[in-house]
Design a protein around this nucleic acid. Sequence first.
DNA 1: CAGAATCCTGCCCGATACTG
DNA 2: CAGTATCGGGCAGGATTCTG
Lengths: 119, 119
Amino acid sequence: MKKEPEFCQFQEALGILVGKWKPVILVHLLNDGTQRFSVLKRKMPGITQRMLTKQLRELEDEDIIQRVIYPEIPPKVEYSITEYGRSLEPILEAMHEWGSSHVARKQAEEPGAQEEKLS
Amino acid sequence: MKKEPEFCQFQEALGILVGKWKPVILVHLLNDGTQRFSVLKRKMPGITQRMLTKQLRELEDEDIIQRVIYPEIPPKVEYSITEYGRSLEPILEAMHEWGSSHVARKQAEEPGAQEEKLS
DNA sequence: CAGAATCCTGCCCGATACTG
DNA sequence: CAGTATCGGGCAGGATTCTG
């Protein structure tokens, strides 16, 4: 039932984070707390409803976020991080930190910077 | 040139780790040090040469791993983690830790285990 | 041994249009 | 407002074959 003894645990975490918008969604929910669908959408220029809905559903299925429906007209739905979802914070933080220095590093070499490495 | 101020940094890290075999490759190289192509392949049942080659190249392009060719017959190529690649360790560690408890959690609910949580 | 070159497939994601 | 339904392109990833 498990193929490799210890290694595929990574894929568990990756499988949840992978998705073009999932990390961004999580960060918004972590930073700004409970939010409506439309608010989230507005914070993510470029995303479509279909995508936002889909990614939210997948995160909900994994019990990372919670979805609360208010039976009103017009409809109102609010999303929030679950306790369990918060446990992802260390990963997100590590990724953000690494990503930042990675970007800095790329900028240091890209700009036609063939300034000899005499240092 | 940058779309969202702070958020897409995640994608930088994700973009490098994503790939069905990349995390596994990295862990093998981190744990066992420099290794030949064939050895790596043997440690990853199910992977094809094409895939292994491809993922290795992508990691190499990002300067995460290093490739050393020995001009012999038969050919010999060794792969190792770069200094820069090591900076990914915190992320991998965080993912592994989270993944493990995630698996444990899933096993706790799946096996028809409605044994009340009296613990 | 360590690959390169092809071919093929699924599904991720996007664009668009329609509902209660 | 917060979705569903449908269509389609592109690319990750697998199987297979050929090489120095």
